[in-house]
Amino acid sequence: MFKDLSPNIKSSITRSITQTFEQYMSDIEWSEERFSVDDYFANWREYITTRALWYNTIPDSMKRDPKFHEDLANRINEIIERILSEPPSEEQIATIQIMQEELGTHYEYECKAEALYVENLLKNHMQNNR
Rank of each mutant, 00 (worst) to 15 (best):
R82S: 09
N124L: 04
L5Q: 14
S36E: 05
H106S: 09
I48Q: 09
S16A: 14
N74E: 13
I9S: 07
Y47V: 01
E46N: 15
L72W: 03
D60E: 11
K63W: 15
M62L: 09
E33V: 03
Q100G: 10
L103E: 10
I28C: 07
W30F: 02
Q100N: 11
R130C: 05
E22T: 12
M25S: 10
S89F: 06
I79Q: 10
D60N: 06
K67Y: 05
Y109G: 09
V118R: 11
S61E: 15
N74K: 09
E110N: 12
S12N: 15
P7E: 03
P88A: 12
N43M: 01
S26K: 10
S6R: 00
S26T: 13
I93C: 10
A73I: 09
K63C: 10
I80S: 02
N8Q: 14
F35G: 02
A42P: 01
M62T: 07
E86D: 07
M99T: 00
I48C: 09
K112Q: 09
A113L: 02
N120L: 10
T20A: 05
V37N: 12
A52G: 14
A52Q: 12
A115I: 00
S16N: 08
M126H: 03
A113T: 00
R51K: 00
W44M: 13
W44S: 05
T49R: 03
A113Q: 00
M99C: 00
D27L: 06
R34Q: 12
S16H: 05
I83E: 03
Y107L: 07
Y47P: 01
T14N: 13
I83G: 11
N77K: 08
E101K: 04
D65C: 13
I80Y: 00
E22P: 02
A73G: 14
E108V: 07
K112S: 06
S12E: 15
S26H: 11
T18R: 14
I76K: 04
D27F: 05
Q92N: 07
C111N: 15
C111H: 13
I96N: 12
S61M: 08
M126I: 07
F21D: 03
N124R: 01
S11A: 07
E102M: 02
E86S: 12
L84T: 00
I9Q: 04
E46C: 14
P59W: 08
G104E: 14
A94W: 02
W30N: 03
A94C: 06
I80L: 02
K67Q: 11
F2E: 04
T105Y: 05
P88D: 12
E29A: 15
E114K: 13
E102P: 01
P88W: 05
M62S: 04
F2H: 07
D39G: 10
I98Y: 06
T20G: 07
D38V: 13
F41G: 01
M25R: 12
Y40M: 03
I98V: 11
R51D: 04
I83T: 08
D60Q: 10
Y107F: 09
L121Y: 01
F41H: 06
E33Q: 12
S6E: 04
T49F: 01
Q97S: 15
Y24W: 02
S11P: 02
I76E: 03
T57H: 01
L84E: 07
R51C: 04
E119P: 03
P66V: 10
E22C: 12
R15T: 00
I98G: 04
D71Y: 05
Y55I: 02
E108D: 14
